[in-house]
Write a protein that binds this DNA or RNA. Structure first.
Length: 291
DNA sequence: TTCCTGTTCA
DNA sequence: TGAACCGGAA
C-alpha cells in the first residue's frame, strides 16, 4: 500500500480496496470536513465553503448518482502494476465526453481482447481498437491516440506510463483533466485537482472560483483548477471531484438545475437563477453579446 | 436542443 | 477563443 496515498487521502485507509480507479470511493468513507485548516497564500476561501461541502456530502449520500454505480476496478485489479497503470490511462482517455458505463464497457472489451497493455495495444490494428471502443465519444480520434500513446509507452517508458503531469501532458489525447486523474489513480499522487465539466460548472455557480485579479467566474476548467487550488485544503483535492461530479449529475445539472432540492442553495449566489450552462454564466456576468 | 467526468488545432 | 470530433440519450 502506498504511503503517498495515505498521506494525501487519509480517508482511504480502510475498507476501500487499493488501488482505486476513477475515484471510486465509497460515499460512506468520505471524510468530514476539517475545520480550521489553514491554507497557503493569502487567498481567502469563500464564505461557508465547509458548510456547503458538508451539505453536498449529505445530498450525495441520500441520492444515488450515475458515477456511484461504476466499479472501474472490475477485472483490472488482477493485472500487474504496469498493466494496471496503463489500463487506468486508457480508461481515462476513453472517458471524455462519454458516460461512465459506456467507458467501462469499452474498457472491458479491450481487457477481454487482451489489449490493456502498452505492448499489445501497440501491436493492435487501429481499426480493431476503434471497433472495440465504439460507441465511446470521439472513438475514431481516440483509437488513433491510443495507438500513439501505446507506442510512446513502449519506446520511452518500457511499457509503463509517464509518472509526472508534464510527461503525461505530452501524450496525444491527454490534457489537464486526464493528467491529474491519472496521477491520482495510477500513481497515487495528488499533483492537482481533477477538474472536469462538473467541477468547473458547480464551482462557478457556487462562486468558489474567479479569473486572476477579477471577480468574474472562470472560463475554462484549467482556470478553475488553479483558482480552486489556491484556497481548497489539499486534503480535499481528491474527494472534491467525485463529490461534485455526482452532485452535478443529479442536482446541480447543466440544464435546469434542481435548486429546490438543493440543501445549500442559501449559500449559492446562482440559486434559482435559471442558469443553463457555464457559457451562459460567463455571459451573464460579463455581457459581451454579439448579435 | 443539449449533454456526456475533454483535447486538439486553427 | 472557438469549431471539430462522435452518436446515443434525455
Amino acid at each position: 500500500m502506498s504511503l503517498s496515498l495515505l498521506r494525501h487521502t487519509p480517508y482511504l485507509t480502510s475498507a476501500v480496496p487499493l488501488p482505486i480507479q476513477y475515484f471510486f470511493i465509497s460515499l460512506t468513507k468520505m471524510p468530514k470536513t476539517r475545520l480550521s485548516t489553514m491554507r497557503q497564500d493569502s487567498v481567502q476561501p469563500p464564505a461557508n465553503w465547509e458548510r456547503v461541502i458538508e451539505g453536498i456530502r449529505r445530498m450525495r449520500s441520500s441520492e444515488h448518482a450515475p458515477v456511484d454505480s461504476i466499479d472501474p476496478d472490475e477485472g483490472v485489479t488482477s493485472l500487474q502494476p504496469k498493466e494496471r497503470r496503463f489500463a487506468v490511462l486508457v480508461g481515462s482517455l476513453l472517458s471524455s465526453q462519454t458516460k461512465g458505463h459506456v467507458t467501462h464497457e469499452a474498457n472491458q472489451r479491450l481487457l477481454e481482447n487482451g489489449l490493456l497493455s502498452a505492448d499489445s495495444m501497440n501491436k493492435a490494428d487501429e481499426v480493431t481498437i476503434k471497433s472495440l471502443i465504439y460507441p465511446v465519444g470521439f472513438y475514431t480520434r481516440k483509437a488513433r491516440h491510443l495507438k500513439q500513446v501505446a507506442k510512446i509507452c513502449v519506446s520511452k517508458y518500457d511499457g509503463d506510463i509517464p509518472g509526472t503531469v508534464d510527461e503525461l501532458l505530452l501524450l496525444p489525447g491527454v490534457g489537464p483533466k486526464i493528467a491529474h486523474l491519472v496521477m491520482i489513480m495510477a500513481w497515487n499522487k495528488v499533483e492537482g485537482i481533477c477538474v472536469d465539466t462538473h467541477v468547473h460548472r458547480v464551482s462557478n455557480r457556487l462562486g468558489w472560483v474567479s479569473q486572476p485579479g477579477k471577480k468574474q467566474g472562470t472560463r475554462s476548467p484549467e482556470e478553475t483548477r488553479v483558482s480552486l487550488q489556491q484556497w481548497l485544503p489539499k486534503e480535499e483535492w481528491v474527494s472534491i471531484n467525485l463529490l461534485l461530479v455526482g452532485f452535478g449529475q443529479t442536482i446541480c445539472t447543466p440544464l435546469r438545475p434542481r435548486c429546490a432540492k438543493c440543501t445549500v442553495s442559501e449559500f449559492c449566489p446562482s440559486a434559482f437563477k435559471e442558469i443553463s450552462s457555464p457559457a451562459s454564466t460567463s455571459r451573464t456576468l460579463s455581457p459581451k453579446k454579439k448579435h
